[in-house]
């Protein structure tokens, strides 16, 4: 039987009169790479923040790793990793210090912190830059370090909010290699993106329009259903119907 790691049932979030997330339903299986697509302002980040326990849903239900997002956010926090849209390492700390800090606040023991730090630095090929301030590194490196930090405590799920903004295709591809590697270790990856070539890398995608899920399925299936060649064309066809406009 499939183990569902993320489930949303009629999940809704309103800000005053504005419904950012409108009764969405979705299920993500363990180890899956799930692409959470949608135009700016479609409600992706809001939905993701509910899953991470940063926002409370107005109605409906969300469970992550088997725990209720409304009432059991503490249990969820121990089992998820999160990489925010804003670049979120400490620029004034070195690469090593950042890894050690995040490993520390995720509750790893001192021995584990040390071991993990060495491991990550080596895996990312950062041995020479380990003592460099993060501010001095190129964006692509920062993103890969952020990802490594978000998975340092071996979470069940990792949430990535537009992790590859602003870098070139080669660097994005390197980032995705890290995602594939994590997925092969059984980590569920829930990722939002603007890049439609990245959508093709996902096991399944959902496309949000105006706060609701307009389409969901394997990239190939969606293309077949809409009679087009790429997820991008599906996206454009759906996004045209949108009445809400992003910032």
């Amino acid at each position: 039987m499939t183990e569902w790691v993320i489930e949303a049932e009629n999940l809704t979030r309103r800000f005053g009169a504005f419904t950012a997330v409108d009764a969405i339903n979705l299920k993500v299986a363990a180890g899956e790479i799930f692409g959470f697509l949608g135009a700016n302002g479609a409600g992706k980040t809001t939905a993701m923040r509910i899953f991470c326990g940063l926002l409370e849903p107005s109605s409906g239900r969300a469970t992550v790793a088997g725990f209720d997002a409304m009432t059991q956010s503490e249990q969820i926090k121990q089992r998820i990793g999160y990489m925010s849209q804003k670049f979120s390492l400490y620029g004034k700390l070195t690469v090593k210090q950042n890894i050690r800090f995040f490993a520390g606040i995720y509750g790893l023991s001192r021995r584990e912190v040390k071991q993990k730090t060495g491991e990550i630095v080596e895996r990312l090929g950062l041995t020479t830059a380990a003592d460099t301030l993060v501010d001095e590194l190129p964006l692509g490196w920062k993103q890969r370090i952020s990802f490594a930090v978000a998975t340092v405590h071996q979470p069940k799920v990792v949430f990535l909010d537009e992790p590859t903004g602003g870098v070139d295709p080669i660097v994005r591809r390197q980032f995705w290699d890290m995602i594939f590697e994590a997925s092969s270790r059984g980590v569920t990856v829930f990722v939002t993106t603007h890049y439609m070539d990245e959508a093709e890398y996902c096991d399944r995608v959902s496309i949000m329009v105006d706060g609701a899920v307009a389409a969901m399925g394997k990239p190939a299936e969606l293309c077949a259903e809409y009679g087009v060649a790429s997820v991008e064309e599906v996206f454009v066809a759906l996004a045209r119907k949108a009445t809400r406009h992003g910032d």
Binding site: C52, L54, Q78, Y82, M83, Q85, K86, G91, I105, G107
Partner: peptide, 17 residues
């Protein structure tokens, strides 16, 4: 402002800490 607060709040660390 830098967005690190979000990451801290998603971590299991108690906000009191």
């Amino acid at each position: 402002e830098r967005g690190t607060m979000e990451v801290l709040l998603v971590s299991p660390m108690n906000p009191l800490i």
